[in-house]
Simulated assay, not measured.
Amino acid sequence: MPTAAGPIDCVVSGDGPPVLVVHGSPGGHDAGAAMAGFLADGGLRTIVVDRPGYFGTPLASGPTVDGQADLYAALLDALGIERAGVLCWSGGGPSSYRFAVRHPDRLTSLVACAAVSRRYVFTGEKGAEKLIMDTGLGRRMLQLMARYTPEKLVEATIAAEGDLTADELAARVAHIVADPDKQQFTLDIAVAANHSGPRRAGFDNDMTQFAAIESLELERIERPCLIVQGTADSDVRPEYSGFAAEQIPGSELVELAAGTHLAFWVHPDSGPVRQQAIERFRSAAG
């Protein structure tokens, strides 16, 4: 989609009040589509983007978090949409929070899931983890695991994204594999977690931008904000959501006990929280 701020890849589907879906780091439209599945079931129109540097969206369309926020507004202009809700996750947080600050008249409601809300420094992977997450071979290995050993990949993903005891991990994996939608979501996100190839430029830029954050000016956000956080998240720690809840006036923080980085979608108690998000998007749209 050409916009006044530059081209951006997006997938638009469904009918109803529009919701912009902003993926994490790494990510892309595939991860965004997994994030957005429950919204379509709730009668909402979804606009899933590739943030700059991911897949077909040039990094030049918005290399900074402010530039990405402005790109979202330009995309809404190009689509003829006056206002939209925003669902963001993890590394999609900084640009989404800045969209709420810089374009408050374009936002109906914000749902931020385990979202980066201040400076975030990535320390990198080592050894086998680097092979899996940072190479084309690792990407292919993840794809093969998702196809042939899905339960093993679910277990590895949940273990890597949360501080769970052995018993908690076994129970969470059993819960996920017993639910086809939750298992598919976990597998989709696991494959999208590799940041080689078409995600490389976006991921590397994200890490540079996030390490340079001084303030996202969260206290200036005026629209309703639901913040969701798993208490055992080892990727974006709970203090990021706690900080956002403290700074954003009138925000609501929902914590999912022993939830990992994927808690909003796969936690045993996440269903009512997703329904709350749907209701917020629908009611805020008027």
Results as ranks from 00 to 15, higher is better:
Phe55His: 08
Val254Ile: 13
Tyr54Pro: 01
Thr157Tyr: 08
Ile8Thr: 06
Gly124Pro: 06
Gly138Leu: 12
Ala170His: 15
Ala174Ile: 11
Asp70Tyr: 14
Ala170Asp: 15
Leu253Arg: 04
Pro63Ser: 04
Ala156Phe: 08
Glu255Leu: 12
Asp269Phe: 13
Gly92Thr: 01
Gly32Thr: 13
Lys126Met: 04
Gly80Ser: 10
Thr123Trp: 14
Glu219His: 00
Arg51Trp: 05
Pro238Ile: 11
Ala284Tyr: 03
Ala285Lys: 09
Pro2Asp: 08
Asp204Pro: 05
Asn194Arg: 11
Ala212Ile: 10
Glu82Ala: 10
Ala166Tyr: 15
Phe99Cys: 01
Leu137Thr: 15
Glu219Arg: 00
Gln68Gly: 05
Val266Leu: 09
Gly202Gln: 02
Phe99Trp: 14
Asp206Asn: 12
Ser283Cys: 06
Ala100Leu: 01
Asp188Cys: 09
Ala5Ser: 13
Arg51Pro: 02
Ala245Asn: 09
Ile81Asp: 07
Gly27Ile: 01
Gly242Met: 06
Gly6Tyr: 03
Ala78Gln: 14
Ala211Val: 06
Pro94Cys: 14
Asp30Thr: 00
Gly14Arg: 08
Ala258Leu: 02
Ala114Phe: 02
Gly80Cys: 11
Val273Cys: 14
Ala33Asn: 05
Ala212Tyr: 06
Ile81Ser: 07
Pro150Trp: 13
Leu79Met: 14
Val121His: 04
Val191Gln: 09
Arg199Gln: 03
Asp167Tyr: 13
Thr231Cys: 15
Gly24Met: 01
Trp89Asp: 00
Ala159Trp: 07
Gly16Asp: 03
Leu137Gly: 12
Gly27Phe: 01
Val22Arg: 11
Ser234Glu: 00
Ile8Gln: 04
Phe243Thr: 00
Leu20Thr: 01
Ala192Arg: 02
Pro268Tyr: 11
Tyr72Ala: 06
Asp50Glu: 11
Ser25Pro: 06
Arg119Ser: 05
Thr165Tyr: 10
Glu82Cys: 07
Thr64Ile: 06
Ala245Trp: 07
Asn205Pro: 13
Gly24His: 03
Ser270Asn: 15
Arg51Leu: 04
Asp77Gly: 01
Asp167Pro: 08
Thr46Tyr: 13
Leu71Phe: 00
Leu187Asp: 00
Met1Asp: 01
Val191Ala: 09
Gln68Glu: 10
Leu107Phe: 14
Ala31Lys: 00
Leu153Tyr: 05
Arg282Gln: 15
Leu153Glu: 00
Gly197Gln: 14
Ala258Thr: 04
Ala232Val: 10
Gly136His: 05
Ala159Gly: 08
Val48Ile: 13
Ala114Ile: 00
Val49Phe: 04
Leu187Met: 08
Asp134Val: 00
Asp77Leu: 06
Val49Ser: 06
